[in-house]
């Protein structure tokens, strides 16, 4: 029996206090899937959004494995650890970061996240698979976007001309309910590490629950009628908490819930081009 829409828990996270106001507009939300509701499980998705400077945005999205007992712990730990690592490094020398440095920063942040999961598993005396999670990690600046991803989910951007591009995509697996987690031995060999040079005006990062709805398979290209209204929405929203609430309402709408029973996370960001044009 599916719960009535009113029973669907809506979460919008408060952005961290050190978040700076800036040209990046954010709308982010997550909802707990109806199947996790039914089994009393927590939402196993976690996201983090941090602005290191007005122009520099970090986004992390982690999706804990359904089968892992400590999925939520794993997802939280991975997202926090990776974000903390990036913030510390990026705060030091933002302007000096070139493509190679950004790539290695992201790679290191993923390695940090894996080490944290390892340590946590040892401390709790459980197998690391109990903390299995995916991770998407984004550094978005005015002139470039860099992304690291292990496992499912995707990152989509709109360029200045309004063209949509998938920067990272869900890896092709033989069966739809399979993916590679951070905790897998092959996590780092399967990592997607992407650097895109250009001005992204909009950005979306999401966990796997949305990927059949918003990407065209098997090419995994962004489906324009899905993203256009959402990108318009984040571009015109001014109140972040209201935007998060509206987005959560959308994620828990009947329209979505009739299509997917999974936990859902969607982080949208928008930056205007006019401000710092040089």
């Amino acid at each position: 029996m599916e719960p009535a829409p009113s029973e669907i828990e809506i979460r919008t996270e408060e952005l961290t206090p050190r978040t700076l106001p800036g040209p990046w507009q954010i709308a982010a939300a997550q909802t707990r899937g109806t199947d996790h509701e039914a089994t009393g499980q927590d939402c196993q998705d976690v996201y983090r959004v941090e602005r290191i400077s007005p122009d520099l945005l970090i986004v992390a999205v982690a999706d804990g494995a359904g089968s892992a007992k400590l999925a939520q712990v794993g997802a939280g730990l991975a997202a926090n650890q990776a974000t903390a690592h990036l913030s510390a490094r990026l705060a030091e020398a933002e302007d000096l970061l070139d493509e190679i440095t950004l790539r290695s920063l992201l790679h290191d942040a993923v390695v940090e996240a894996i080490s944290a999961l390892d340590a946590e598993a040892s401390a709790r005396q459980v197998h690391i698979n109990e903390l299995a999670t995916t991770l998407i990690l984004i550094i978005a600046r005015r002139e470039d976007v860099a992304v690291a991803q292990v496992g499912d989910g995707a990152t989509v951007i709109a360029d200045q001309a309004g063209n949509l591009l998938s920067l990272t995509v869900p890896p092709v697996t033989e069966y739809i309910n399979e993916t590679t987690f951070l905790t897998a031995p092959e996590a780092l060999t399967g990592i997607q590490l992407v650097f895109w040079r250009g001005r992204a005006t909009r950005l979306a990062a999401f966990s796997d629950g949305l990927q059949l709805l918003c990407l065209q398979w098997p090419e995994r290209l962004p489906y324009e009628p899905f993203f256009a209204p959402l990108f318009e929405f984040v571009g015109t929203s001014s109140d972040e908490s209201q935007a998060g609430h509206d987005l959560a309402k959308f994620l828990s709408s009947e329209k979505i819930k009739s299509q997917t029973h999974d936990d859902l996370t969607l982080v949208l960001a928008s930056i205007t081009n006019c401000a710092h044009e040089d």
Partner: peptide
């Protein structure tokens, strides 16, 4: 219009 009204879903094959 709300997001629910305006957002459309990709027409992918149903997983089997």
């Amino acid at each position: 219009s709300t997001l629910e009204d305006s957002v459309e879903f990709a027409n992918n094959s149903q997983p089997r």
